[in-house]
């Protein structure tokens, strides 16, 4: 059990918006919560590269290919910043990767959906990165210093991700009727998974209350989801696209959009591993890790050689 006096001092610090640093005292549950959340976030960045890499070799122009490449490289960087932030809490990189590979750690479910047309590259940047940005902007204010600093850097880099995706959607929506239909199909497929990215409703969210009290999260799932919906609708409507939700309606009295019922059965089904791409995504990540084994071995051997040379010199 944590010492009640220390616990009270800790809460005082949190309430005063003083960031917690790696060597500061922290409740064990705070540490565990953060490890879970940050590593899950890191895995999402890494797994999230997969739907996009699917289109690298088939991007419609050199310009599009270069942009996609730069975006994927950023996502790899985001994963690495976040793994490092998790490590400051006392877990090793290996532990964190093992948990993912054993299927014990989660990543964002949205990446278990396939990217079947080029329009999906647009929808992913516009909607999936768009939703991620809403979440990450809020997390810049998280109470854990290394996590907060990683978020600040990530948000700076994310700013082009959503725009490049939206640009793809714009060019399709303004193209031939077939191209516009492609954009509409992609919106139809990615809208609900993006809305679900914020997780269960507040009333059903297992970790939410404690996370908010400790300022690991600064806003609730539903607040963030609402913000994402409110800012996105107009971006679709201006292109003449429609959202696949008949209940979507501006509510004058709340100043927000009302939206329809979320299919939580689908959400939990994908979380539990039964989505269209869960197996493929995880297997690919494991294979990439195993394929890199010889590189790590060679790098270790090289480093050992250099070290023994400098010692005898």
């Amino acid at each position: 059990m944590d010492d009640p006096k220390k616990l009270a001092e800790f809460q005082e610090k949190i309430d005063a918006d003083i960031k917690i640093e790696p060597r500061d005292w922290m409740p064990e549950k705070y540490r565990q919560n953060l490890i879970r959340q940050i590593s899950q976030h890191a895995h999402s960045e890494i797994i999230g590269m997969q739907p996009e890499k699917n289109w690298l070799t088939r991007a419609p122009s050199i310009r599009a290919k270069k942009i996609l490449m730069a975006k994927i490289q950023d996502e790899a960087g985001h994963g690495l910043y976040l793994y490092c932030a998790a490590e400051t809490l006392g877990v090793s990189r290996e532990q964190v990767l093992n948990l993912l590979h054993e299927g014990k750690a989660k990543y964002s479910s949205v990446f278990n959906y396939p990217a079947i047309t080029w329009a999906d590259m647009g929808a992913i940047g516009w909607l999936v990165d768009g939703a991620a940005i809403v979440n990450q902007v809020s997390l810049q204010g998280t109470s854990y210093g290394p996590y907060s600093r990683a978020m600040v850097k990530i948000c700076m880099e994310e700013s082009f991700h959503q725009r490049q995706g939206y640009e793809v959607v714009v060019s399709l929506a303004k193209g031939t009727p077939e191209q516009k239909q492609m954009a509409q199909d992609a919106l139809n497929r990615w809208w609900w998974p993006s809305v679900m990215m914020f997780g269960p409703h507040d009333a059903e969210s297992a970790h939410s209350n404690q996370s908010l009290k400790w300022k690991i999260k600064r806003e609730s799932n539903d607040e963030l989801r609402q913000r994402f919906i409110d800012k996105t609708i107009h971006q679709g409507e201006i292109l003449g696209l429609t959202f696949p939700d008949p209940d979507l309606k501006w509510n004058e009295s709340t100043g927000h959009y009302d939206y329809g019922k979320i299919d939580w059965d689908e959400f939990w089904n994908v979380v539990k591993g039964n989505g269209p791409g869960n197996k493929q995504r995880l297997n690919h990540n494991i294979a990439a890790h195993e394929d890199g084994q010889w590189v790590r071995e060679a790098a270790i051997a090289y480093a050992d050689k250099i070290n023994s040379k400098t010692k005898t010199a």
Binding site: Q73, G77, L80, K153
Partner: peptide, 20 residues
């Protein structure tokens, strides 16, 4: 200070730092 990274030797650390 901007962050951290994993690398096996100085040269690799420098290249990764530049890229990251």
């Amino acid at each position: 200070h901007v962050g951290s990274l994993h690398a096996y030797d100085k040269k690799m650390a420098m290249t990764s730092a530049r890229d990251l």
